[in-house]
Design a protein around this nucleic acid. Structure first.
Length: 321
DNA sequence: AGTTGTGTTGAAGA
DNA sequence: ATCTTCAACACAAC
């Protein structure tokens, strides 16, 4: 599940490995994941998937022979600036990741040739988009659930796309001060877990790192954000930076399908604090880690370390029949 | 073998 | 307006 650290890992890889390359052509078996907003007459506010063959033909035409200038990250979005004033935005959503290697199309399906990580690892085998580069290699999107999207747009209009425009400040943006963070948290609800997962509040945090940030700051996931003390908010702010930076250093988490562009797993998997550790002893007090549902998402936490000092919302949990 | 859990995010429903 | 549920899709685990 690519969150900020996983997306940053990919962006760093792209700047190191494909910057300066030219895109020769495109292959895809799921054109509905692709949109070309740089084509004439296309409105940026049109959010629907476009299954028309014209949309994909425009994309193929508009990306052909463009040079990759640089890669950037905003929240969980990968922005690849191209020559000709175009930018390719890729959002990996839940199961998407970018790979650099070589594939051959056999009977309409891509077959990995190298490196061995692509050939051996089944999670690298769901190829739905291939960009052919001018050095004989390919940049490919593997995406088991086909939720990821690739959008081509004019570089100047990238910040007008709803994907970017509706985002809150990036979680690692240096200009996101403690004061600004505190103001955002105070405006949000209903629980702190749900608040951390809102891209329009703070961009880049998903289920893995929200769990670890709350554990690191001794805050219960059901806490009402409006009732957090300044000390708790300060702890959360520091934990957010610490946890995310550490995960970037370790090249992300691969509890599920995430891989870097070489097809390799991230090492934060072994450094997780609580995410996906239900039943395992807390690393601080040995209490078994608990998992509950918060707003339809799972939240893992230590019931002792993160025990609320006050009531959450004064409400009891609803039972579902 | 059918059901459930998985996670991102926008749309639809309450 | 604010919150919850669902839908996009595919697979593993039960």
């Amino acid at each position: 599940m690519p969150e900020l650290p996983e997306v940053q890992t990919v962006v760093d890889d792209l700047n190191r490995r494909v910057k300066g390359r030219k895109i020769l052509r495109v292959w895809s078996d799921t054109p509905k994941q692709i949109r070309d907003y740089s084509a004439p007459g296309r409105r940026l506010t049109d959010l629907h998937r476009d299954e028309s063959s014209k949309n994909f033909r425009n994309f193929q035409k508009d990306i052909k022979n463009k040079k990759i200038l640089r890669a950037k990250r905003i929240g969980k979005n990968i922005l690849i600036d191209l020559s000709g004033g175009k930018t390719l935005l890729i959002h990996q959503k839940m199961t998407g990741h970018l790979l650099l290697g070589e594939w051959a199309i056999k009977k309409g399906r891509p077959v990995a040739i190298k490196p061995k990580e692509m050939v051996k690892d089944p999670y690298n085998g769901f190829i739905h988009l291939i960009l052919y580069l001018d050095n004989g290699k390919q940049l490919a999107l593997s995406d088991l659930r086909k939720f990821a999207k690739a959008i081509l747009a004019d570089t100047k209009k990238i910040h007008d796309l709803p994907d970017i425009k509706n985002l809150g400040p990036d979680a690692l943006d240096p200009s996101l001060t403690l004061k600004k963070f505190a103001n955002l948290i105070k405006k949000s609800g209903p629980t702190i877990k749900q608040a951390l997962l809102k891209p329009e509040l703070v961009a880049g945090i998903g289920n893995i790192y929200s769990d670890d940030i709350l554990y690191q700051s001794f805050v219960h996931p059901l806490q009402n954000p409006k009732k957090l003390t300044p000390e708790e908010i300060s702890k959360m702010y520091k934990a957010m930076r610490q946890v995310l930076k550490k995960a970037v250093r370790l090249r992300g988490t691969s509890t599920s399908d995430f891989r870097d562009t070489a097809g390799k797993e991230g090492r934060y998997t072994n450094h997780r604090l609580v995410y996906g550790r239900e039943g395992e002893p807390c690393q601080r007090c040995q209490t078994p880690i608990k998992r509950i549902k918060v707003g339809g998402r799972s939240a893992s936490f230590c019931p002792k370390c993160q025990a609320p000092k006050r009531t959450y919302n004064g409400k009891k949990k609803k039972k579902r029949n």
